[in-house]
């Protein structure tokens, strides 16, 4: 394989910003020792052993649980939406996609902050509810608020890949199915859905990855009552300064994401067709 010399800057870029940091995280995760240069590090599995403590496993479990739930919800919400958009005429379709993407032009943090004022005890939603004569609801600082934040922020990542696969489906396949006597449900379950699986799988990875590692959503909408795995890494790096343990947690998280990607890729390989955004 011969690479053009114009690709060297990219390779250099990747070495500096991807390979070296990853190698450092690996190095830190398998070592202990006070700072003072690489020479003072000793090989150790202590960081990983420490993670096996029930309190950290709980954190991992809560994170995975929330991430799975939000992935499922975005899928249930996102698939019909992608279908609706894909069925429209190109012009209308583009407008709809634009509308879906426009909120993403705004800063992610700002959009999450906006939910605080909407969901608060005296926030906008509760204002309307009380005006209608009902008792105010507890909307913020709980599981549902965190889930809502994840679903809201990551929905486009589910819709876009599914949409891009659905648009590319050859219409004649659907017509053929109809000609052969399939009803609407059968067309969907036997033709459209199987063909769209690569999109769904891309969508799942695109949502699951940020959801399992988020630390902003859980802090803002969870009122700091949630220690998710992302918060744990943040805590180790920023406040405790234990980069070894922080790196080990990152490696464990990466391993989890890799496993999920491997599983989903297995599904993906069984089907032909484009994988959306990847």
């Amino acid at each position: 394989m011969r690479m053009k010399w114009t690709s060297y800057p990219y390779i250099l870029w990747m070495i500096i910003f991807i390979v070296v940091p990853l190698a450092l995280i690996l190095l830190y995760s398998f070592t202990v020792g006070e700072e003072g240069g690489i020479t003072n590090l000793r090989f150790s599995l202590d960081n990983f052993r420490r993670f096996l403590d029930p309190k950290y496993l709980d954190v991992l479990w809560i994170s995975i649980n929330l991430a799975l739930k939000s992935t499922l919800i975005t899928m249930v919400l996102g698939y019909p939406l992608a279908m609706i958009i894909a069925k429209e005429k190109p012009k209308k379709r583009n407008v709809m996609i634009l509308l879906l993407v426009i909120p993403m032009w705004m800063n992610f943090l700002l959009r999450t902050y906006a939910w605080l004022t909407l969901l608060g005890k005296n926030g906008f939603i509760n204002y309307i509810i009380t005006k209608l004569g009902f008792a105010p609801l507890n909307l913020i600082y709980n599981d549902r608020a965190v889930l809502l934040g994840m679903v809201y922020n990551f929905l486009p990542f589910m819709v876009l890949p599914i949409y891009s696969v659905l648009v590319k489906i050859d219409k004649s396949l659907i017509e053929a199915a109809e000609d052969l006597g399939a009803n609407k449900f059968e067309v969907f379950s036997k033709v459209t859905f199987p063909l769209s699986i690569p999109g769904i799988i891309t969508g799942i990875t695109m949502v699951f990855m940020p959801a399992v590692s988020t630390f902003v959503i859980s802090r803002l909408l969870g009122g700091g009552q949630y220690m998710l795995i992302g918060n744990l890494v943040e805590q180790q790096y920023l406040w405790v300064g234990d980069w070894h343990f922080g790196s080990a947690i990152s490696i464990i998280m990466m391993a989890f994401i890799l496993v999920t990607m491997a599983i989903t890729a297995k599904f993906d390989n069984q089907k032909e067709g484009g994988g959306g955004l990847w």
Binding site: K55, V59, I62, M227, Q235, V240
Partner: peptide
């Protein structure tokens, strides 16, 4: 004792 504080806090936060 920093790590003790740190672990107490994780446990409080992870409590459901």
């Amino acid at each position: 004792f920093l790590s003790v504080y740190d672990e107490i806090w994780v446990e409080v936060k992870a409590q459901r």
